[in-house]
Design a binder for these strands. Structure first.
Lengths: 202, 202
DNA sequence: TCAGTTCTAGAGCGATCACTTCAGAACTCG
DNA sequence: CGAGTTCTGAAGTGATCGCTCTAGAACTGA
């Protein structure tokens, strides 16, 4: 479904493509696009390189699909947060979701969209650009949500929605870097609370 | 001086070690530790691999020395900022310095201490840990400065210096990620001003 | 001048990189 | 059943990885 549409004929695939993708996601998340070798990936996925190429195309396309899984799974808190009724509620939910996702014990720490390919050599140039767009898109969705909040009177007149959105995005990314370094989630949550203490109320 | 003490005898080195290090720094900064290949590095440095190994040891030690150069050069604003007379002045100078350093047109965008090795494969594990320590140390210096400010009455009683330091560190790292994505420095400066608008004054 | 020392260009090391090939296994359909 | 299709394990592709070796160049001190 999320990968290749199955044909009715021929030898059936000997593995679950979505499950293999989830395992690849964990490898990319922890080691980054360039740091994750095909040997690492296929070993974690439990399949041969031939199966990987037949199913996913190549390493870059595997990463793109892993990023989509990241959106559907670990990053699924974002649309839920944006649906919160108030701008402050949105901000709170975004930061709490970021902290939860970047510090979970059973997952790599940090954010795939940040550490997946922040600086790369030539081989990673396109994936690097992909993640720049991914982060830009995240910012744009927050900005649009705050623009709506402003129009609805949920933010005081004169508030700059883009500036506020940039504030949240920067806090998210800063939190992701801290989380990658192993900082305690409780401390990050304390910080998130403090960072929203002077939120502009209508 | 910063590298190998010169002997009086033998064939003299045919290049300036510090200048070569500066060029290596730029490559690591842009491509990250794993993304920068020895071929990239030595080509930028203008020397052979044999000269690189004789002078700097190996790739990891080259990175460690490049990070020291980073502290002395692009990151030299930090001790100056910490020497500002007030806590608010410290915070302002740290954010302004971060923005300046991570967005200069003649340098790679972003921060070496963040994007040099945020997520790596096995080969980059030690450099990754090195940068975690580098960031931890940066945070600790800010925290200590704010503890002093609290003792001096430059921050209101009851203020948590560690929390405030974490706030600055997270803003710095978030700014670094945004800068790596090409965000306009003017917008980042606007954000920095806004983020300090509710600073706790004594 | 010449012995002693250090540096460097070029070739080359085994290992690993992303990726491909191919023979045969495992299925569906008629 | 056999024909047709698809998947997979193993072996192997050229390129590049970080790193080393060696011959000789370039210096100093005696």
């Amino acid at each position: 479904m999320t990968t290749t549409p199955r044909r009715a004929t021929g030898r059936p695939r000997g593995f679950d493509a979505d499950e293999a993708l989830d395992r690849a996601l964990l490898v990319f998340w922890e080691q980054g696009y360039e740091g994750a070798s095909l040997a690492n990936l296929t070993e974690a996925m439990g399949i041969s390189t031939a199966s990987m190429y037949a199913t996913f195309g190549n390493k870059e396309q595997l990463f793109r699909k892993a990023l989509e899984r990241y959106d559907e799974g670990p990053s699924a808190y974002v649309p839920l947060a944006l649906a919160e009724p108030t701008a402050l509620g949105v901000a709170r939910a975004l930061l709490a979701g970021t902290i939860r996702t970047t510090t979970r014990a059973d997952q790599p720490h940090g954010c795939l969209g940040v550490q997946g390919a922040l600086a790369t050599g030539d081989a990673g140039r396109e994936v690097r650009a992909l993640l720049v767009d991914w982060r830009k898109n995240g910012f744009a969705r927050i900005r649009e949500r705050f623009e709506r909040a402003l129009a609805e009177g949920d933010l005081p007149a004169g508030t700059d929605p883009a500036l506020l959105a940039r504030y949240i995005a920067i806090l998210q990314q800063g939190i992701a870097v801290e989380a990658a370094g192993g900082v305690d989630p409780a401390e990050l949550q304390e910080l998130a609370d403090a960072a929203l203490r002077n939120w502009p109320l209508p």
